[in-house]
Amino acid sequence: MNPIISHIIPVEAIVDFIYGPLIWLSFVIFAAGLIVQTWRYKMMTKINDNPPLIPKKEIPKSETGSRWERFFYKLAFFRLSVMGFNPLLVTISLVFHLCLLITPLFLLAHNIMLENVFGFSLPSFLPGTSHLLTGIVLACGFFFMLRRIIIRRVRAITTFYDYLILGLALAPFLTGFLAHQNAFDCYDTLILLHILSCEILLIMIPFSKFFHMIFFFFGRFLIINEYSLGAPKRSWQF
């Protein structure tokens, strides 16, 4: 390290901060942020006052349809849903988000640290599996990026922020993978970047587009909508 630089900027202190307190801080902000934001959004909704149920005898039988008719209707509905139109994109999104969650949770190195600090750990994938999952995440991320560049309709609404978000989501995976491979012989720098990017990611999740991690369930399972899932009871009240 250049002594002049380290004289002006307390590099070591910053590195220590990133390795130590910032980790805890980011986890606290992440957890508290999720709770606070979820509560905030919940306050923007109200239990919907549904109209009273219509007695069955008031509806002519010909209008309710048989069980099969209703099943076929639902089938047709599914075919015309987003899954029917964009099966590839939906599948890739599902795989991407799934891997995004499980890869870090069941990574051997993470669990060894958990064991060291808390004395308990989650089961771990074999290193090979983790590598594969990381590869899948990066490949899906690359697919999303290409999509943003190539497809006209995505390009029409893409901003710089979207690339930043995508980059931030992928950074921990890329740096972690490279550090594990000891790429460019600079393990220390890579692992520092890995930790730093994770910390930034964790802090940002509750307060940025990343909050869709919670909001997806919120908006689809809690709010009444043509496309809602399950039996939601709420509607927005801004």
């Binding site: 987003v82 964009n86 995505v154 869709h212």
Partner: peptide, 26 residues
């Protein structure tokens, strides 16, 4: 904040589908 700019809404718009998939109808 929540719009992820994913463009999955496009096909649900009948105008988008009938106007040569013009992104301005998304």
């Amino acid at each position: 904040t929540m719009c992820a700019h994913c463009s999955l809404c496009a096909e649900s718009c009948f105008l988008y589908m009938s106007r040569d998939l013009d992104p301005e109808y998304m």
